[in-house]
Design a protein around this nucleic acid. Sequence first.
RNA 1: GCGGGUGUAGUUCAAUGGUAGAACGUCAGCCUUCCAAGCUGAAUAUGCCGGUUCGAUCCCGGUCACCCGCUCCA
Length: 507
Amino acid sequence: MSQAAAKPAENKNEKDMKDIVALCKRRGFIFQASDIYGGINGFWDYGPLGTELKNNLRDYWWKKMVTTPPVGPDGHPVQIVGLDSAIIQNPAVWVASGHVGGFSDPMVDCRETKKRYRADHLIVLIPNDDTPWITSIADDEEFLNARLKKAAKGKSINDYKQKSLIDVDLSDYPKILAPDAKDKGTLTEPKEFNLLFETGIGASEADKTTAYLRGETAQGIFINYKNVVDSSRVKMPFGIAQVGKAFRNEVNPRNFIFRSREFEQMEMEWFCHPEDAPTWFEFWKSERKKFWESIGLSSENILMRDHAADELVFYSKGTCDIEYKYPFTDPDFGELEGIANRGDYDLTQHQEHSKTKLEYLDPERNNEKYLPHVIEPAAGLTRGVLALICEAYTPDPNRPSGVFLNFDPKMAPKKAAILPLMAKDGHPEVAEKLYMELREEFAVDLDIKQNIGKRYARQDEIGTPYCFTIDGQTLEDGTVTARERNTMAQERIALDSVAAYLREKLR
RNA sequence: GCGGGUGUAGUUCAAUGGUAGAACGUCAGCCUUCCAAGCUGAAUAUGCCGGUUCGAUCCCGGUCACCCGCUCCA
């Protein structure tokens, strides 16, 4: 991103995160968690409308994954089953997955340059005299040479012993010259970063054992893979889907709900024969992009970004992020969903650590035994909510509210508002009757108070796509006004066709 | 985690070393046959803790939170 003028939009027609956050609070979408206690960093609460919106996204994802999954390359619908695993699992799960131990890299900061390095990425050149210990980045010969030239005062690489910073005693840190520093002794001691939240199981302090809140829902799926295969009559290839909370002790929560310490994921693990994995990878990339577009994200705000080879985690055979152009990343994009070809890494890990055979016996391949490969479309539910809100936020100086939320009707927290034109003359009675009928099928609002313009404006601000207004004519000929949010256009339709009208619009 | 900024009603802002105003929102009443979000009225705020001071929302320190940049993001 350009350093310079990343400044808030002067133009009122642009989307400004400040305005979006304020609207979210004002209308009950998203609140700072523990608000009345001064908040708590990295946590957010979903208000009445935010909850509806999040549920709508979650339910639609579930429908598209589990209830009505897509048609596969062979022309038949694929098979995906659901799961809801515990947030707390045996801690060994997280050891096997690599979340505990393996990936918790110690970091060091340089007090002088404010840079941060992974301790295991730094090599230290130790001289046999009392000149500074020079550090360099591992596997970066160019950097090393440049560093030697600048700091070694004529010495060559052969005048030094090499050690990883991890193996250097803390008492020697004052001698160390940090990679980009001018003075020695500026490195802080290595800090362990473990993004998993720890908790204790057992009511008595003495008997507590350490456990972890899950850092992703995916592991719950892998450890239930065998249970599902044994109980669900699924056959390769198939998927297991799960929606739920995940927790990460993010170093730096930022950007509203984009990076939170408690968030929700919608993950599906697609198990298939290793040979077919590349085909399914492409299949799910395409399906997932279609999904986000089908709920209103415009394609120009979506970017499919394949990870470069050096960006892939070591076990991944390919990863593609579906990124969204959030207002705070604009003109860049930020992650919304990651689709990864994880190979057989996870099942291998769990097979070894649990000492439980997880191979699949495939009768359709001459009883070949294999560990399935896994394609993982892992979407952020809460990030999806954020993307939906950002996409929907539409300043419009030409309407009383000054802004409206252009939600896809499927996603809108309220599908319609029932509004008696006046709070008398029999209007409220008819409105309430209509409301009672519609609410059986749709999330609808009944609003009787104040003038009609105010009520339309209020509905615009919360993104309600349709308003039905009962007026004097309703009592005479049984028609109501249907008002469409985006165009503010009105048409008269029969009172008894309102449900059908809504049903049609929401398809 | 580092650096910078900010913290006043629900929101957006104003003001002051002698405890604060507005607009919009909210609520109530009135009015209104379709969006000039009408009229009248009401409730609601100086993030938290400490220090200086006769007295702090204002000055100082700490803390918490938010924003921006860097770093990080298995």
